[in-house]
Design a protein around this nucleic acid. Sequence first.
DNA 1: TAGAAAAGTCCGATATACGGAATCTTGTCA
DNA 2: TGACAAGATTCCGTATATCGGACTTTTCTA
Lengths: 274, 274
Amino acid sequence: MSESENAGSSSLGKAIHILKDLAENATEGVRVIDLARRLNLTQPSAHRLLKSLIAEGLVEQMPDSKSYRLSLEFFSIASQARRREGILDIARPSLLRLSATFNDTVFLLVRSNFDAICLDRVEGPFPIRSFTGDIGGKVPLGIGQGSIAILAHLPEEEREAIIKFNMPRIMDRAAIDEVDLRIKIEEVRRIGAAQMNFEMIEGMAGLGVPVLDRNGIAVASLSIGTLASRLTETRSGTITDLLKTEAQAISSKLNPFDPTLRYPASALRAAQKS
Amino acid sequence: MSESENAGSSSLGKAIHILKDLAENATEGVRVIDLARRLNLTQPSAHRLLKSLIAEGLVEQMPDSKSYRLSLEFFSIASQARRREGILDIARPSLLRLSATFNDTVFLLVRSNFDAICLDRVEGPFPIRSFTGDIGGKVPLGIGQGSIAILAHLPEEEREAIIKFNMPRIMDRAAIDEVDLRIKIEEVRRIGAAQMNFEMIEGMAGLGVPVLDRNGIAVASLSIGTLASRLTETRSGTITDLLKTEAQAISSKLNPFDPTLRYPASALRAAQKS
DNA sequence: TAGAAAAGTCCGATATACGGAATCTTGTCA
DNA sequence: TGACAAGATTCCGTATATCGGACTTTTCTA
């Protein structure tokens, strides 16, 4: 809020802010008044917009309470965006193979502005916690091995801009400062993989490699999440090799005419939110 | 189009129609002019709305061509809607167990208006094709075993309304008429599971059971998708039993205060689209 | 059961979205 | 390669959809 000049005006902008707010409170549902207060809307406006969103099927009112929440229809519509990149179908066999081989959970992350988004994951038998969480989960570039693997393999100029923008968000969520991050990135660039160095989540460990496009720029990453105790010195070498092999296989199948995920312009707008 | 009175007016409505159109053409991307023609918009309007959607981060313009497509940000936002029901986390262990036991792909479908939406799936080693497809996929209630399992265990009045509305959509996608469907539903109600009777997809077979709430009304279904050759007479009995056991386990863990997925009012609006 | 808080509705003023026309850009064919 | 066509983008005066204050109805709470 505060000095946002023309961002939230226009009914469309407000409606989208409502959707984002509902997403953040997806489990409990949201009352009109709280929504209005949070987004600086009048009650009538909030109500009217919610009605419109319901008419379009993106929102529904919870049967018992009066609260509103996102509809599954909305989820279903947006899920189509996942197919956007051919990479989902290309990578899935690799994920299945890797998960079966390691007996661990494997992630496919792709870059989206200043974040990495989990496009797919195949679960191993061990329960794990990760920064990205489930499919659709988002994490700033720089947090987590899969995410760092991408960040480290972006063009320098872009990488610098991302570090600058993300550093506060990173320090907010993980006990790393900029020096740590830069050392880590250098190491990742050297060995072509992000190895678990410090446990960012208690008891958890990860290992990620970038998926590069024809220009050597990262568009995605393959990573595993596992118990720290399972990522021994001896295992991690083999795991890295296998991840790299699959990443290479995916790279070679990517449509060379598929645009890489670059967002020169929208960087501005992303800076506004969050 | 045609006699839509106030549905598509209001910039919000138009913007949402754009999002839906972009979702349908997620892989290729969409040109302004095609969008405008399909949605009966003027070119400037389409363009202006797209710009607004880009400003909000829901849409992005493809770097090489001028085409527009949904952003991953949009996908990430909507993914939160998946957590809406506690059922996702409750059911996941069951899915993992079942998939490991059968060596086949297991689906969790939930009801959404006249459709079933795939909330989760765990893949087995055999490549399969299904009506619902991947997570987020949608199929009319009445097509596919998991979907029929839900339909068969809804209150009679609601079921009739759904059959009436869905029949054209069903005949459009599967070689079934209303008599077939009603016979099938009776059978499913009798044995509490939707067994593969006719191959709706060449070479594929499925088997689904409903997940009931405290009132005995279906809120979801567990189903497996497999090669027809793998669903032998002897296997299907055991599979049905295991599915039922897990479905029962899920039912008992569902929060009894969680509202069931009923949509009495929004049925109207759903009838307008599609 | 009364009082308060939230939900939902109405309506006139006005800010905002609309689309025709003009301009710029991209693609195509001779 | 140049010139034409189709599409993308911008401009701007006008019509209209949106806005919020005030009001009614419903739900919560003590």
